[in-house]
Design a protein around this nucleic acid. Sequence first.
DNA 1: TTGTAAGCGTTATCAA
DNA 2: TTGATAACGCTTACAA
Lengths: 344, 344
Amino acid sequence: MVTMRDVAKAAGVSTATVSRVLNKSGEVDQTLTERVLRAIQELNYRPNLVARGLRTQATSVVALIISDIENPFFTSVCRGVEDTASRAGFAVMVCNADEDLGKERDYIAMLAAQRVAGIIISPASAELTDISPLQERGIKVLALDRQLPIPTDSVRVDNRSGARTATHHLLASGARRVACITGTHGATTARERLTGYLEALAVAGVEPDPALQHFADFKEQGGYDAVVKVLELADPPDAIFVANNRMTTGALHALVDHGVAIPEDVSIVGFDELPWADVVTPSITTVRQPTYEMGTAAARMLIERIGGDDSAPRDVVFEPELNVRSSSVKSRPERKPLGRKKAK
Amino acid sequence: MVTMRDVAKAAGVSTATVSRVLNKSGEVDQTLTERVLRAIQELNYRPNLVARGLRTQATSVVALIISDIENPFFTSVCRGVEDTASRAGFAVMVCNADEDLGKERDYIAMLAAQRVAGIIISPASAELTDISPLQERGIKVLALDRQLPIPTDSVRVDNRSGARTATHHLLASGARRVACITGTHGATTARERLTGYLEALAVAGVEPDPALQHFADFKEQGGYDAVVKVLELADPPDAIFVANNRMTTGALHALVDHGVAIPEDVSIVGFDELPWADVVTPSITTVRQPTYEMGTAAARMLIERIGGDDSAPRDVVFEPELNVRSSSVKSRPERKPLGRKKAK
DNA sequence: TTGTAAGCGTTATCAA
DNA sequence: TTGATAACGCTTACAA
């Protein structure tokens, strides 16, 4: 383990001078600078970031706490965060809290203790997630996808609008009984998407049926089970709005397993884009979120905060976009869209 | 910022005693212990892990450096690593090197400087990835999915065997000209899967055609472009073996866009399981890797090393499994498999 | 059983 | 411009 002392000794200077050379703080004589740099090179010295962090009370690490690392929505956001953050000289650490409040608390504690510069979090719960350990230490926090009880910067999409558009589209395309499979109760996104669905029903003058509304777990199995339940109803739905990508996959599995024709028997729209939406027959109508852009926006805002910006918290809301494909259009049997020459 | 000193003062003891209580090291009087615990509670004290790490030269963090966070293979492995590691009291940080040697080097440097306890890495390059900064500091390293130049613990699948089985299956199912779309040159997995493909051809007495072999980028676009190239050949293939999940998605896009019938015109087998392999028509034949198990095995081995195990490096090789579905069977038109009652 | 004090590898404040 | 030296918050001999 070669330390700054070793470098100083080798270069015949003090550690203070080595530090100044390293951080380009203060003026250092040209000759000494060269001696120091050579010593660093020869000894293959690497500064100890733990010690530096202890001394400066700051690191150039930002963390990303997500609730499901197996969900393409989050991994795509990750990419956006990372591209922006690493360009600004920050390393990104991803922590998977897995919708688990306990794990989330542990990660928050750990990151607070590690003195990361900032964190982007997709909270497991709107009410119960506690970011006070971070705020106490002045660590900047940005809420992603979901909001927090305390006002903080946030980046998300207009979930109600997206759900409304999707539901409206199903009704307009010939559906009359639309089911809604949304996520866990705790997540604001799940509740907002349900609200949007209900709003669209109201606008169309359709009486909502509680039997058609399900809270599932945001994963494949949850989507599968919920669909099985609504299919077993005496009066089953002729359309389903599914509130996220993984549940949509599960829902499709269930429909296929039960020999349900899509969209003739049941049409379907899923929230979140699917890489394979165009590969399947019928192709799947989705509500696309601008995931990558959300990631870059989140990183940019967080880094500004770290840079000292202390203006009022901002809430950036992106607009999701309905991508109409074949799974949702009952009336006129659509042809597979032509002319695509590029993979997603 | 409340430190150990504050706690000590509040409890009327020394920091040494507080430390002993905290770490359950040494015997501490019952009364004092209680006073300390109460002070900790009242002041809401949180130990500073940076300082502790500086002092003990160790942290209970393991890092995972992966080459593509958008690839479900890696995210599933992550889950395995995390479940095992967090049960053993380790936090897991995921870093996305993105097949980029520069980023990878930066992350290695950073993690070395942070003094993580160990890292699991899927190296960007078999030859150029340099883990010496880690080894110099005694940080345990395990290679995942791909191997390293230096002997280290490793967890991977038998890529040659998987590719051989897939290719053999295509030939046995009626294909006569099989193309192979593999990953980047740098990755051992890409080369091994190509080798397996060639071996299967050799066994079947089929002359390999370089025009049917492509190195792509492990992503959708690469798979798409490669398929377009082989389709434009004067003598196009009647089957394709694709060496990973994302490229398989791209390959399917290309086939669909070009109106190619699967499996009648071209049959296809993809390496890596796809969550939606059963949802599409035809369902997609895949070579499944036991991703989650690989993650748990990797974490277990790494943690044993951290615990002091210094036996010879182990190379754990899992066997991939061919999952025959409809996309690969030309001869007898298969019925959709029945009896599945559970989503993936 | 408890406290004192010496580090861990940096950075920053002084004097020189 | 440079160098002692005192923190940063913690753990751990060693002494009491």
